[in-house]
Computed example of a mutant assay.
Amino acid sequence: MNRVLVLGGGQLGLMMAEAGARLGLVVDRYDPERALLLPGTSDLPVPIDLQTCLERYPVITVEREAFPASGLSAELASSDRCVARGALKVIPDRFDQKSMLDKLGIPTAEWMNLDRAGDLDTAIQRFGGVVVKARSGGYDGRGTWILNAGDDTSVVPVAELAGQAIIERKVPFRRELSIVGARNLQGDTLFYPLTRNWHVDGILRLSLAPARACQALQKPAEAMLKGIMEELDYAGVMAVEFFEEDGQLVVNEIAPRVHNSGHWTHEGADWSQFDLHVHALAGVPLHAVNVHGPTAMVNLIGTPFDQAWLQHPGVVHWYGKSVRPGRKLGHANLVADTLEELREGLRAWADVLPEGFEAVLDSELGL
């Protein structure tokens, strides 16, 4: 098996195609918005039909969770060739996602439906601080409202969200962590070490890996991700984001795809998450994950490319997308021998990191 089709025309699929090319694997991408195929890493689109896709690609994967309700991408996403079809039925809807976690006995923040106006007041009385999340469509802080007890609830469009949102207990977490792992078509699994993440306004700005002081949490995190992948009969790379609360892991979100918090693996490990994703689908054995040293991933958000970055410590990955506020346009990876050296290297990136990033590093250093 040497051909894989990715549903989605973004940077994640492009990085999968790049990873496949290094081992002679053909990874093509289908752009649902333009209804065109992007062969390999090419930007020259060509038309393709369902029958040709089924004849050419024995395995279909995804780089995102949502697709148009009709058209070729919808047919391909629901076909038995798509190794993410089980996940696509569950993960995009937060009600279904949370219900699955409850069924599996995996810890997640207590929650309830937002069905009517009074439910928000009920949740605040029950939980104190709450997070209102649209059942589908929200990401990078969109479709999310955070309220503490006593806050003005009118900022939440309850009438619009009724029946289309959930309400979670606001978790007083110590830090945000994630795990990225792969499962192949035979059911074998492999996991990267837990990663420390720092979000600002709902957008990931900095990841540090391996996360410090996580030896006792690694195996529980792996068990949770493995259980989710098995429940969904999923193949490829998947990520789970956690809150660490009182020394325990609480699942926040699940991403049935390669994930932003795994971008550090480009330079920080022998095999990146994109390598493992493609290998898991193409029958290449999953390789042991050798981490090179403390690694940081800096997201480059809403800013034009700056030639000066090429003189900074680390390696820049640029996606070639148009610039707009809040958009993920690239990332930079820094690898060091120690966390202290990593901290020094990140100071060169202070102009693209929000205020407070050094406090995150200090907490990982135990300062």
Rank of each mutant, 00 (worst) to 15 (best):
V4F: 02
M15E: 09
R22S: 14
V26I: 15
R29D: 14
P32T: 12
L36V: 10
T41D: 12
T41K: 11
T41V: 14
P45W: 13
L50H: 10
C53W: 05
R64N: 12
F67N: 04
S73A: 14
L76M: 09
C82Q: 05
K103D: 15
L104Q: 04
G105Q: 06
G105Y: 05
A109R: 00
A117V: 12
L120I: 02
G129A: 03
S136A: 15
G137E: 05
R142G: 09
T144V: 12
W145A: 00
L147D: 00
D151P: 00
V155D: 05
V156A: 01
A162S: 12
G163Q: 04
G163F: 04
A165W: 01
I166T: 01
E168Y: 00
K170I: 01
K170V: 02
R183D: 05
L185I: 11
G187L: 06
L190V: 14
P193Q: 07
P193T: 06
T195C: 14
D201I: 14
D201V: 14
G202D: 10
I203T: 07
L204Q: 03
L217H: 04
E222R: 01
M224T: 09
G227E: 08
L232D: 02
L232K: 02
Y234V: 03
E241L: 01
H259L: 05
G262E: 12
T265I: 11
H277S: 07
G283I: 07
V284P: 04
V284T: 15
P285T: 10
P285I: 07
A288V: 04
G293K: 06
P294L: 15
P294Y: 12
A296Y: 07
G302S: 07
L310Q: 03
Q311I: 14
Q311P: 10
P313W: 13
V315Y: 12
V316Y: 06
K328I: 11
K328M: 09
G330H: 02
L334D: 08
V335F: 04
E341N: 13
G345H: 13
R347W: 14
A348W: 14
G356R: 03
E358V: 12
E364D: 10
